[in-house]
Design a protein around this nucleic acid. Structure first.
Length: 221
DNA sequence: TGCCAGGCCGGGT
DNA sequence: ACCCGGCATGGC
């Protein structure tokens, strides 16, 4: 996208959002209850089916491990066993540990303290943690800390490049800007929009492509 | 059976 | 600056 902000882009994004919302209804994301649970889920779901993440979250919750302090204290080996169902459990255990160390060091495990920080500051800090990339970072900011940042994922690329709103090779920040410059910076809107994109893609994508002719957005093209 | 899932890192060009 | 292999389990 050469011009990040334009009336046409605003109109099409808004009508896509409305079409999806009217078709699928509200998605009630994130499915986690507490912000800390959402954060851990964001790391665990990297390139992983959400179903597997639910199992791992359940393991953690049943063991009473779903607090910054408890995760900080258990051994990496133990953490690996608990999150085993998500796959990549060796690296993910390290990523969760690194993230929780940050929460403990900077906020003594108090998420409400973390929430008071400026978004741009948090974003930089989170991206500096090994294992937290742009999508995980922004998912944490939006779905756990309720900051108005737009989450871009593989589905967003697939759907919106198919509909010619972004280029196939556009980078993360480029895509993110298209949404953030053409929509109201509204947490509820960003929350629902990303969730609806995921819903649409799960519904209509086959084999990493997005080619369904009967998708609810087709009438907008 | 093989392919895919709500990425990210590190090493090689 | 891109490109790619590795990471690993569970479901269809």
């Amino acid at each position: 996208m050469s011009h990040p902000s334009s009336k046409e882009t605003q109109d099409i994004l808004f009508s896509i959002y409305n079409t999806l919302y009217n078709y699928y209804g509200p998605q009630y994301w994130w499915p986690g209850e507490a912000p800390f649970e959402v954060m851990i889920g964001a790391i665990l779901t990297q390139n992983t089916n959400w179903r597997n993440v639910e199992t791992a979250i359940k393991n953690l919750k049943e063991g009473g491990f779903l607090t910054p302090d408890r995760i900080n204290r258990i051994s990496v080996k133990r953490l690996q066993r608990l999150i085993k169902p998500v796959g990549f459990f060796n690296i993910k255990a390290e990523r969760v540990k690194a993230f929780v160390r940050y929460i403990m060091r900077e906020y003594l495990g108090d998420i409400s303290k973390m929430k008071k920080e400026k978004t741009s500051f948090l974003r930089k800090k989170l991206l500096g943690i090994k294992g937290i990339g742009p999508e995980t970072c922004d998912s944490i900011l939006l779905y756990a800390l309720e900051k108005p940042v737009f989450v871009v994922d593989a589905y967003t690329r697939r759907v919106f490049s198919r509909h010619k709103i972004i280029g196939e090779k556009d980078c993360y920040s480029e895509i993110q800007l298209v949404f953030e410059k053409n929509l109201n910076r509204d947490v509820k809107l960003f929350n629902e929009f990303h969730a609806l994109i995921v819903r649409l893609a799960k519904d209509r994508c086959k084999a990493k492509k997005y080619e369904c002719e009967t998708c609810p957005l087709e009438s907008l093209l």
